[in-house]
């Protein structure tokens, strides 16, 4: 069998990335080769660096290049509020909003009977340890508004009840959302969580 050349290997690897298929991978690789100096070399260098240094933060589970991520290392963010998220992507989404100024705790998934994920597979014991160590006064359960997400939120609430103030994100109409296009579940949740105007 003919051995693949490096360009074909790169196309095959790129095609495995989310959102890309063989055709879009070929286009991306061709674009990188054409912009070798401006894109390909810096990209290769950045990827090599990330491959060598990326790891999970020992404290919160965020992805960073050191043992402790910049958020956990920042003393200004030790305000006693901890935001529990399912995944690193959710942490990044919260950071994009630039509203929350406390620290995070990444669970690494949700309880799921289907996938065999029980409480022991999540970073819940570490969360309990952090409450005392970081003098946490409030835990915000910022988990997805799905059955699995909310099951996990209730489970964590059971575990932490009485030890710390608990809150969760509101559920309802998104910004720019039109009632006519919302599903009945979202409308029900919004109505249940209505507030005085």
């Amino acid at each position: 069998m003919r051995e693949k050349n490096p360009i074909e290997t790169l196309i095959d690897l790129m095609a495995r990335l989310p959102g890309l298929g063989p055709r879009s991978a070929r286009r991306a690789v061709l674009h990188l080769i054409r912009k070798r100096g401006a894109l390909l070399a810096p990209l290769a260098e950045a990827m090599a660096q990330v491959a060598a240094t990326a790891r999970e933060c020992l404290n919160c589970g965020n992805v960073s290049t050191g043992d402790v991520c910049p958020i956990c290392a920042d003393e200004a963010r030790a305000n006693g509020i901890l935001c529990v998220v399912e995944d690193v992507a959710d942490l990044w989404a919260m950071e994009r909003a630039q509203v929350f100024r406390g620290r995070y705790h990444v669970l690494g998934g949700t309880l799921s009977a289907l996938d065999g994920i029980g409480p022991d597979e999540l970073r819940i014991p570490r969360l309990k340890d952090r409450l005392a160590a970081e003098r946490v006064t409030e835990v915000i359960l910022a988990l997805n508004a799905t059955i699995d997400g909310q099951t996990t939120a209730h489970y964590i609430a059971d575990q932490l009840e009485g030890r710390v103030a608990l809150s969760s994100l509101a559920q309802g109409v998104p910004i720019g959302g039109e009632l006519d296009y919302l599903d009945d579940g979202t409308i029900t949740a919004a109505l249940n969580a209505r507030k005085r105007f």
């Binding site: 799905t146 059955i147 909310q150 099951t151 609430a157 059971d158 009945d184 579940g185 029900t188």
Partner: peptide, 15 residues
Amino acid sequence: RSRAAAAMGDRLALS
């Protein structure tokens, strides 16, 4: 019809 919204707010219903 969705039943998730009715269940999510209540621990017993969700369980």
